[in-house]
Nucleic acid binder design. Structure first.
Lengths: 136, 136
DNA sequence: ACTACATTTAACGTGTTGGTTAAGTGACTG
DNA sequence: CAGTCACTTAACCAACACGTTAAATGTAGT
């Protein structure tokens, strides 16, 4: 992980399947560390650290009640991540559109695919540590 | 990165701000390695490896034309990532709803927040290497 | 063939990740 | 207040990520 911005931290957290499994679990119900560890093939300290990572990413919050430590999902940061990705929706949509067009064209004639018809920019967000900033 | 599944690879690729900047650049127009390196504060070999990572994640494809190597964005994997995240939309939506409700309630009376009203499961996808599978 | 250009591969250093086991902390229980 | 339960922290390790510079590769032009 090279970046320390919010988006990098969130995507990093999501990059681990164990952490995604934990989030899936927490989507159902809040849970203790022991409960979260049970279905997983790793030790409790390992889970504890995953929870720390998730908490640091803002994806969960935790409260102590007695000797239990409850974890609760906080999906707000996912929204930011989704919004970043959504900016590219037009590209994958138009890719599919192009594919449709291509198939139609092939059925009619026999031309090769085009692929240069692309709309204008997508605003940036998520520049490298010290970018020379040309991508805005 | 502990997982090697598609989702892990894609989220890992997105976790780096330099790679996100490259994708932002490629959203505008296909580009050569040299063009992509220009605005970045790192060497060309470093960019070359980022491109390899993005290609491995399926986020770009590359073609050789003469001595140039063009990179083109392939946003399809982003769709899968977005879909994974979208499953949690209800949670962050209802979080906001709960917040609204809380604020309204506070304005009217003075009760503490509730937070236990959560709907049923969200289907899994993204289980750890060898999970004992309980989260489905 | 020689040279120049674009890019990749190799070798290396360094920091981080994700797992382990063992020891520490804090709250309840007898 | 000793013991146990639910965790966290510490110490350690192997693997990997990300950057560098130097050398190798491949294509084009002269």
């Amino acid at each position: 992980m090279s970046g320390s911005d919010q988006l990098s931290v969130v995507f990093s957290a999501l990059a681990d399947p164990t952490r995604r499994a934990i989030l899936a679990e927490l989507a159902d119900r809040d849970a203790t560390v022991t409960e979260l560890t049970a279905p997983l093939p790793i030790s409790m300290p390992a889970v504890s650290r995953h929870l720390k990572t998730l908490e640091h990413a803002g994806l969960i919050s935790r409260t102590r009640s007695g000797k239990l430590r409850m974890s609760r999902i906080e999906a707000a940061p996912l929204r930011e991540a989704a919004e970043w990705i959504e900016r590219y929706r037009r590209i994958w949509d138009t890719s599919l559109t192009r594919l449709d067009a291509h198939l139609a064209a092939v059925q009619a004639a026999g031309r090769p695919t085009d692929r240069t018809v692309r709309g204008p920019a997508i605003p940036d967000s998520g520049s490298p540590g010290k970018a020379h900033d040309k991508e805005n």
